[in-house]
């Protein structure tokens, strides 16, 4: 069987088609949100939300089994969406009050989210094993309905993140100036937190809640090694996100390895290589004098005798 046949076979499998589409959408959307999070110095927000979403999954499960739904986890994804959005808004509110307590709030969510999830899943009659697929992802179980959800949310996240990027950049870059410009700072901050929460829930199926943040942050870390501007960082990170997600997924088609972990390890590997090669690869700045071409502020003795009209002749004290 030639390599080409293998590719055709891979693309022919409906399961793989769904998984690939999900990987492309998530791989493109997660780094866009991640760029704003890194800029706001909240790289771990995705992690905090991911932990809280686990409680949401268990809560959805609990409600599902209580209502007698089949399968029991029908409400797991909606539960995760609700918990993630609520959690992200709480974190944003805490951050707004004062920056110092922000990481404490995150810590509380990390522990509370996991503990709550484990406790609730037991009450719902499930086992911790049921949670594993959410914690580490199970892209092979993506159903057509899941795919529609993922696609809709990914389009929403990309639309907001790319369409409002200048405004979201403005509040993330300099909140004080954004306020002094009358921008709806609070609304925009909440928007960043909300699209982060939505990204966590759509990436849950691909890489799992524990590794979601990696897909949001690591491509940004790679991109900013090379990009000079915010927009370039975002675009490059998004491309890297798609490439590692698809590559990681395709590897699992031939090797029996977990896709989520493969994608993340691949991304970190790319980061390690990129960081090592960065001094060689980065476009050198244009060869010019880094000092601006300006009349010197400081008058040197030599300048006094200069015929240069730009400097004002200082009257000599001896005349």
């Amino acid at each position: 069987m030639t390599a080409w046949d293998q590719v055709l076979e891979l693309l022919g499998s409906p399961l793989m088609q769904r998984a690939l589409l999900a990987a492309v959408l998530v791989g493109a959307a997660a780094p866009v949100v991640g760029t704003f999070l890194v800029q706001r110095r909240m790289a771990l927000l995705g992690d905090g939300i991911g932990h809280v979403a686990l409680t949401g999954v268990a809560l959805g499960w609990l409600v599902g089994s209580w209502a007698g739904l089949v399968p029991q986890d029908t409400l797991a994804l909606p539960g995760a969406v609700v918990a993630a959005v609520v959690g992200s808004i709480v974190i944003e509110l805490v951050r707004e009050r004062g920056r110092t307590s922000g990481d404490l709030a995150l810590a509380l969510m990390f522990y509370g989210g996991i503990a709550g999830g484990v406790l609730l899943i037991k009450l719902a009659g499930g086992t911790n094993a049921n949670l594993i697929s959410y914690l580490f992802g199970s892209i092979s179980t993506v159903s057509t309905a899941d795919l529609w959800w993922t696609a809709a949310l990914a389009v929403l996240v990309l639309g907001v993140g790319v369409g409002l990027r200048t405004a979201l950049f403005a509040v993330s870059h300099d909140e004080e100036f954004a306020r002094a410009s009358g921008l709806p700072v609070r609304l925009l901050s909440m928007l960043v937190a909300t699209i982060a929460a939505l990204t966590v829930t759509i990436a849950m199926r691909v890489v799992g809640l524990l590794l979601v943040s990696a897909l949001m942050i690591v491509p940004v870390a790679i991109a900013q090694l090379f990009a000079r501007s915010f927009n370039r960082t975002m675009t490059l990170a998004s491309v890297i996100g798609v490439v590692v997600s698809v590559a990681g997924l395709v590897l699992t088609y031939w090797q029996d390895i977990p896709p989520g972990a493969t994608i993340v390890v691949l991304a970190i590997g790319v980061y390690a290589v990129a960081a090592t090669l960065q001094p060689v690869l980065r476009r050198p700045p244009p060869p010019q004098d880094p000092h601006p071409d300006m009349v010197d502020d400081v008058l040197l003795v030599d300048d006094v005798d200069d015929a240069d009209g730009a400097t004002v002749r200082r009257p000599s004290p001896t005349t």
Partner: peptide, 19 residues
């Protein structure tokens, strides 16, 4: 901040105001 931004991008953010 963690992400690089160019002078041009910072100045462009000054074009946004109010709504």
């Amino acid at each position: 901040a963690g992400v690089p931004a160019t002078a041009y991008e910072v100045v462009t953010s000054g074009l946004l105001h109010g709504r």
